[in-house]
Design a protein around this nucleic acid. Structure first.
Lengths: 193, 193
DNA sequence: TACGTTTGCCAACACGCGTTGACCAACAAG
DNA sequence: CTTGTTGGTCAACGCGTGTTGGCAAACGTA
């Protein structure tokens, strides 16, 4: 409450710099992981001084938190036919992954940083498990079924976007949907084997 | 040739230290990744001086290379019935992963180090693709089918041993084989969807 | 014009890193 | 006992890191 009429923060002159830093940070974290993505390198990419990063984001951990603060919300799947959920999910994750590299950064960093790993786990807990509970046969199996789906999707992301196996990068979108779709469908809805 | 009768290297007094260093290095690399697993920390675990690591392994890269110098050879699958390859493969990888942590280290480091990533890729090329070519329907599809298998297996390893999702760690061995077995079986042998 | 705030750059700090070379103790051979 | 080799410790180097505080220019306002 500043007493002024403006309720939300006024647009500051430095917002452009803030955004530039954040964009450079996202690229560097996605490409190099946490330790190798140095503040100096990010600042060099953004054409500013390293001390500006500290001023605007506090410290390196704060920068990373701001860089990966996105929410990969699942689409409204309630309108989908139950037999197509697998394919729809794969398509959703595929486009999600290709259009913003924060998710690649999250895997790269999560491989060594427990905090980032927990952030990924929260997506599992708050989105994938509830979905499995809605569409699956037995509610108490939802965590296991969701975990299997996560392993399938993250496995593809790992080989394709992180490790960059040529054989995995060569797969076309439709090919991936055709192969992984039935897998997720089975993990979610098939009876216990 | 030293002129002595012994042809192969004699057992040296320092072999115990060498082994201790290597064991500590494996644990640290698996737990922390390449950058956070410092030579000083590894030496502290092994109760020796950091300079010994340099003397015996040259430099940090050499230490890591020695720590992950293992060959996850596939068992002789030619004797297996063709319909059980999926389940057999899953069981094989599962035991492989649990009894030596080098593979976890390889994923953790491969997430940020291209050299380690290439080492993983070589397993795909030299073992999984030939297998897919032997058991699959169309030889030219072998790389794609093998890449899908790798994504399934590595995805489970990622969520279970690297990110350590509780929901993934809670899965029992038989449960994993029952769910992932048919997936690999389909990736390897099913007709193109 | 004068003044306080914002935006940015520069130089430096303390720290931990990989790595090196000098030095000492234990052992084997003469 | 003497001598050369091996196993191991210690202290230090150069470097890059995250982080800090001071100072100069640009800006908005009166």
């Amino acid at each position: 409450m500043t007493g002024s009429t403006e309720n939300q923060q006024a647009a500051r002159r430095s917002d452009a710099t803030r955004a530039t830093i954040l964009a450079a940070a996202r690229e560097r974290f996605a490409a190099d992981g946490y330790e190798k993505a140095t503040i100096r390198a990010i600042a060099r990419d953004a054409n500013i001084d390293p001390s500006m990063v500290m001023r605007y984001y506090g410290n390196k951990a704060g920068l990373f938190a701001a860089a990966v603060a996105i929410d990969p919300g699942l689409p409204s799947l309630s309108v989908e036919p139950r037999e197509a959920i697998g394919r729809t999910l794969v398509r959703h994750f595929l486009t999600l992954w290709e259009e913003n590299g924060e998710l690649t950064a999250l895997i790269r960093v999560g491989a060594t940083d427990p905090a980032a790993a927990e952030r990924m786990q929260s997506v599992l807990r708050e989105q994938l498990i509830p979905l499995a509970r809605r569409v699956g046969p037995a509610p108490e199996q939802a965590p296991a079924r969701a975990a299997l789906c996560a392993s399938a999707v993250l496995g593809l992301a790992l080989t394709r976007y992180v490790l960059r196996f040529p054989e995995s990068m060569a797969l076309g979108h439709n090919e991936i949907v055709d192969w992984l779709g039935p897998t997720l469908q089975r993990y979610l809805t098939a009876p216990t084997p």
